[in-house]
Design a protein around this nucleic acid. Structure first.
Lengths: 350, 350
DNA sequence: TAGGGTCCGTAAACCGGTTTGCTAAACCGG
DNA sequence: CCGGTTTAGCAAACCGGTTTACGGACCCTA
């Protein structure tokens, strides 16, 4: 027994059964082509030998992998820390599982998303948070992979699923204005390449919604009222703290994600302030737990799970049919008012 | 141009460059074997043609896929709804990304986990929540894949990572006893095959911790004080509601996951009761958001992210070295007391 | 000038399956 | 008994790469 346990191949089964490889292959994939007695005999022997067709070899000949990729421009270790992503993934999974596809997450390997793309064995890709100008998009395109963009900028020729970010942001800003707030700070999501004007699509759109709505009410949103961080609880804490130590004392916060909003609330409490008595906070996403936070979060609802489902459905239709023109879907957002926002406080306001 | 856009293969590049396939392969993987001028010329031509080595073909010859699998006995669409899993995945991702591995999620396809395992192209598997007696474990073993079990029953011959579930559960139960609670209900996690005594390892261990600790104080935990549901917010809501409509009015709840605990709190509020004034709630996991719920959750802390990291590290060491004896790691749990628990109320208790 | 090393490149085998003709035998009605 | 149709199974090509073994050219040394 000094022999290393080699994998059982189709040839082993064929030899043992006294038939050709073809016959074995047929027994598995096309039993009707064989005498049913032979087929079951082959299957029995295969089973006895513990033979399982090598999925990689199968992929190679069939030119399909049976799984779809989820492309993220940031490390999964940070993306997964955002509850938004869990819900989004649940949406993705629900339809891909139903359709028999596995899930493969593609994230930058050693800093290179391009490298990760070339290593990935998938039949199609859902790219989340990649803007059109990201060079990696071309990489996927050149690889000949069907793709749908989620939360990008929908100008391109690829199919896409988005939500009405700008509209949602406007609702959030308008809500705060209505409550009398004038000194408002923004907690923005930190993309991998946030600098520059053409940056992160979602961030841009939301920011535009905030800025314009405030501007229409005569309130200017200056750059130093915007703090940036990853879309996580810790990111929200740090972003708010940076504003605070810089001396800003806003009466309200517009956070671009619920995770950041929750972080902000935590940081606010740590500074001895109350929400919403001293500072109001509005989130974005309306994740599952937003209704259960202390205080329950006022936030912009987007159909997170539905977005994932729609993305995969669209991807599958691109993979199977191939539309003439790329489809762009835009889902609705709405404001959900809970208890983290309230009228601006008289006391302590300058 | 009626020609379908065929993928550019290594042969195309070779022909165009007037060299052999071998040379092209070397240019990519072993440039030193070639005259550097030739190598760059080949690379240039490859680039110009838009050639990318097919990852599947590469996998086949190299006998490795460059990605690790995460095996879950339940549909991802429900697993991902639990914030625990996001954090756990973040842990997994952080070390697998660092080591250059992609992530592939393996969940039951059309109800069959076995089928999913055979389709999966991975170099190793982290199985979460699979008990030793699950037949799928053998399937992985027979496929010759290195594997580590997380949250299973550590009796087997496979490497494993667990936490001290029973100890944590004891702390939770003891805490409630100390506060004077005697009428206590349990919200248990619903596994795919929860029935039977040999069922879900984690559930068993936690339940044992609850039961024995209560029993030592003379409090019996009867079957009708245990409600079962998926480890999600909705699962917690439904489980509590079932207890409620069955007429149970416990003064405290032991939930096996924070998501369920939060669901329970929501359901309790809906019934017009207060937490912890009327009913105390203890969770399990201590997810990121547990400190931010209303009220902040008293819960059993386990190092969720660390568990993911440890699992992958262990898996990689199995894949690379291959230990003589399987390693079993057990991480600590501890009770974090926040505000969802309080002394049993005098009023209204029978 | 023979012998021995590098350097550069190639042909062919190989990874483990699937699929496409093709053939030989059995079957079938007339 | 004969031509035509099924039925059952096979050999070989193929998917797209990697790797081994080999050989020619060139250089150096004794």
């Amino acid at each position: 027994m000094d022999q290393v346990a080699r994998r059982v191949t189709i040839a082993d089964v064929a030899e043992r059964a006294g038939v050709s490889k073809t016959a074995v292959s047929f027994a598995f994939n096309n039993p009707d082509r064989l005498n049913s007695a032979t087929a079951t005999r082959i299957l029995d022997i295969a089973n006895e030998l513990g033979y399982r067709p090598d999925p990689v070899a199968r992929m190679l000949t069939q030119r399909k992998t049976g799984s779809i990729g989820i492309l993220t421009p940031q490390d999964l270790s940070v993306i997964f820390a955002n509850p938004f992503f869990g819900t989004f993934s649940a949406g993705i999974a629900s339809v891909s599982e139903e359709r028999g596809y596995g899930l493969h997450f593609i994230s930058p390997l050693h800093g290179s998303l391009t490298r990760a793309i070339h290593r990935a064995t998938v039949d199609g890709v859902v790219a989340i948070g990649l803007t059109d100008d990201h060079p990696e998009i071309d990489e996927v395109r050149r690889a000949g992979l069907p793709m749908v963009l989620v939360d990008s900028a929908t100008t391109g020729d690829a199919a896409s699923v988005d939500v009405d970010d700008e509209g949602g942001a406007r609702l959030a800003a308008a809500h705060l204005l209505e409550l009398g707030h004038r000194d408002i700070a923004v907690l923005a999501i930190d993309g991998p390449r946030v600098a520059g004007s053409g940056g992160h699509g979602v961030v841009d759109r939301r920011l535009r919604g905030y800025t314009e709505t405030l501007a229409e009410a005569g309130v200017e949103l200056t750059d130093d009222a915007i703090a940036v961080g990853p879309a996580t609880v810790d990111g929200g804490i740090e972003a708010f703290d940076r504003l605070w130590v810089a001396g800003r004392r806003p009466s309200a916060i517009l956070a671009m994600s619920d995770a950041m909003a929750i972080g902000a609330i935590r940081a606010i409490h740590q500074r001895g302030q109350a929400v919403p008595a001293d500072i109001s906070v509005v989130g974005f996403d309306d994740v599952d737990l937003a209704a259960s936070t202390d205080p329950p979060l006022t936030t912009v609802h987007q159909p997170v799970r539905g977005k994932g489902e729609a993305a995969v459905r669209l991807l599958l239709s691109v993979m199977e049919g191939g539309h003439a023109a790329p489809v762009h879907r835009r889902l609705e957002t709405r404001l959900v008012v809970r208890s983290s926002t309230g009228p601006v406080s008289q006391a302590g306001r300058r």
